[in-house]
Amino acid sequence: MSQATENQAFASIKTAVDENPVMLFMKGTAMFPQCGFSARVVQILTHMGVPFKTANVLEDPELRDGIKQFSNWPTIPQLYVKGEFVGGCDIVTEMFQSGELQTLFDQNGIAKTGA
């Protein structure tokens, strides 16, 4: 990916993670996830009832590569909370089971939808 395209991808990623308190880069959409790992993270976020935005990397090859450089993380899905990279499917699942994910949301003032 050329430097210019990478900068462009980084800029749009930065905007997305800054503007959306809970941002999930995934394969597919929340309604139609196209990968088991992405689907699991959507399931966890839905279960916790917090509002979240998704971006479908399958629709945007530059985003799909750019996000991996941006976070120095080789796989999708990738979850960001308040602009900070939280982890992929394994880490999000572990944090959900240990209660750390709820704590992270609480600490960042991310309440359930309609709470």
Binding site: W73, P74, F85, G87
Partner: peptide
């Protein structure tokens, strides 16, 4: 952090 730990393993797998 967990992320840093996993990144060390990913680095070991050399891409």
């Amino acid at each position: 952090s967990r992320v840093r730990q996993h990144q060390l393993v990913y680095a070991a797998l050399q891409g």
